[in-house]
Design a protein around this nucleic acid. Structure first.
Lengths: 237, 237
DNA sequence: TCCAGCTAAATTGTTGACAATCTGCAATCT
DNA sequence: AGATTGCAGATTGTCAACAATTTAGCTGGA
């Protein structure tokens, strides 16, 4: 409840400021997004207006507006008179996404290398250390979000908000990949070696080297995905 | 009216298919988008729900849903209880956009060069010829959309739908730049020389050369923008 | 058994109404 | 005069109701 303390002079952190700036639709949108990213809503699943509205205690209007925003973000598909469905991303579109993501990551590395600070280098090195401690298959549930955070932080450090927004949108969409072996166990050690290479290239402040390291890492991730079981639409045992 | 002919066996091209697939909200969204891109709605202008709804003869819900989609697309800003405003893009964000666009165009050139067909090369050459005929200041109204089409076509030819979607979204947003000298008269001849260089690099099927030509063209466009009159928030005489 | 057609329930599309908030202007006070 | 308060109009936020469409189950017949 600490975020609702009153009497603060900063309206952006008070309950008043919260009410002034936050609409029901935004909250619904965030909640549906959370359900999709967490896997609570599977790719391809139908999302019913009334079910969401009833669950969250809001009217259908707010849910419908949230649907429109999520469609524009590429996370759901709206079929008129039929309903809203969590998008599925096939292998061909997945390839395209990896290609674009390689381009964005390459750009992030190129932008960040000349401007990275020592504190930022230390922060990334600590994250790689943390990742190293989560390589066991049973700690994969920790490795996965930490890995996302590592890459997100690099793009954030690049200092280009437009790039960061595009990157995050793409990463959100890539959660819907049917076979996401990059999220599974295979090849994690290799992946962390590549992380080390990325940080080393950034620390050397060599833009070309950093760009190459970032691009190669994404391409390796793509290869790991393609090498995974081709036909496993559901979470295999 | 040709698109509404009935009796066709293909529902996607018939009036029935149109009604089945198109919602009021989509039409409203397209109309507002058109108004923004055409300049009918200036950057920073307020867009009132009822005015749009009344003008298009629909209820406010459809307009509100369209607003949510347009906000996600980065074209409008929603302030709770205050209204919807066409976004303004300042010089700092413009720089970031040019940087990202350079990355996307570079990727498009790199992807297209190895796979471009002779027919596509001819098509691009014809477009450069057309552009050459519109360099006079008075025919700028023709040059501008043709220039957009030229670049859009290149990204389309690259064959990556995700890249194309991101590129188009970014271009839409860049229409909201306050000083868009790339859209004004200055430096058009130089610009078309660069177009020729792009097509030549693509025709040589040299990925690196094509990527460089694309990136340099965007950077030159950025420089032309920065060289324009810094302080002209309204359309100067 | 299988299929066509029908009915009822569920779901979505759209509109209108009411409540809450903001804006602009006039009246009032210091 | 300048600032503040209060009020009416306009605008937005949210919800509930109605219409249209789809979906599912059922019945009847070949």
């Amino acid at each position: 409840m600490t975020e609702f303390r009153s009497g603060s002079s900063d309206p952006s952190q008070s309950a008043i400021g919260f009410l002034r700036s936050t609409s029901l639709t935004s909250l619904v949108q965030e909640e549906i997004l959370r359900m999709i990213l967490s896997g609570e809503l599977d790719a391809g699943a139908q999302v019913k207006e009334f079910a969401i509205a009833d669950r969250l205690g809001v009217g259908r209007s707010s849910v419908r507006e949230a649907f429109r925003a999520l469609e524009e973000a590429g996370l759901v598909r709206l079929e008129k008179n039929r309903g809203v469905f969590v998008r599925q991303i096939g292998d061909d579109e997945a390839e395209e996404m990896y290609s674009v993501r390689a381009g964005l990551d390459e750009l992030a590395g190129r932008l960040l290398a000349p401007r990275i600070t020592q504190a930022e280098i230390d922060e990334l090195r600590r994250m790689v250390e943390e990742l190293e401690g989560c390589l066991a298959p049973e700690s994969f549930a920790i490795y996965f979000p930490l890995n996302l955070r590592f890459h997100d932080r690099i793009v954030e450090m690049a200092g280009n908000r437009k790039l960061l927004a595009m990157y995050r949108r793409l990463i959100n969409e890539m959660h819907l990949l049917r076979r996401r072996s990059l999220l599974r166990g295979g090849g994690l050690l290799v992946s962390n070696d590549e992380h080390r290479a990325i940080v080393a290239a950034l620390a050397s402040r060599d833009a070309d080297a950093a760009a190459t390291a970032m691009r190669d890492h994404v391409r390796a991730g793509r290869d790991r995905m393609l090498a995974s079981n081709p036909a496993s639409p559901r979470s295999a045992a």
